[in-house]
Amino acid sequence: MTAADLAVQGVSWAPAKTAQPVLHPTTFHVAAGRILGVVGPNGAGKSTLLRLLYRFQRPHTGQVHVGGQDIWSMTARESARRIAAVLQEQASAFGLTVREIVRLGRTPHVSGFAAGGARSEAVVNDVLATLNLDSLADRDFGTLSGGERQRVMVARALVQEPQVLILDEPTNHLDVRHQLEVVSLIRSLGLTIVVSLHDLNMAAGICDDVLVLNDGFPQGFGPPQSLLTDQLVSDTFRVAAQREHLSLSGAAHFSFTLPN
Rank of each mutant, 00 (worst) to 15 (best):
I71V: 14
P59R: 03
F56T: 15
Q88K: 02
R77V: 14
E78M: 09
G68R: 07
A85C: 10
Y54D: 04
R58V: 10
Q63I: 13
L87H: 01
Q88C: 02
L87P: 00
T61H: 08
A76M: 14
H60I: 08
Q63H: 15
G68Q: 10
W72H: 09
M74N: 06
L52H: 00
A85M: 08
R77L: 12
L52D: 02
R55F: 09
V86K: 00
T75F: 09
A85Q: 05
E78P: 06
L52Y: 03
G67P: 03
T61P: 08
R81H: 01
E78Y: 05
H65T: 06
M74T: 05
L87N: 03
Q63C: 15
A84K: 04
T61N: 08
Q63D: 14
W72I: 00
Q69T: 15
V66Y: 04
A84R: 11
V66G: 09
R77A: 13
A80K: 04
A80D: 01
A85H: 04
P59W: 04
L52I: 11
L52W: 02
G67Q: 13
L52P: 00
Q57S: 14
L52N: 00
G62V: 06
H65L: 15
A76F: 07
I83K: 00
E78W: 03
I71A: 10
A76K: 13
L87Y: 03
L87M: 13
R55L: 12
G62R: 09
V86C: 09
Q57N: 15
A80Q: 02
Q63F: 14
Q69Y: 05
G67E: 06
V64H: 03
I71Q: 11
H60S: 09
G62C: 07
W72M: 02
L52C: 11
D70M: 06
V66A: 06
Q69N: 08
I83E: 01
H65S: 15
R55Y: 08
R58F: 06
W72K: 03
W72C: 02
L87S: 03
R81Y: 04
F56I: 12
Y54K: 12
W72T: 01
H65N: 15
G62L: 04
E78I: 10
W72R: 00
I71F: 11
S73L: 10
L87D: 01
I83Q: 05
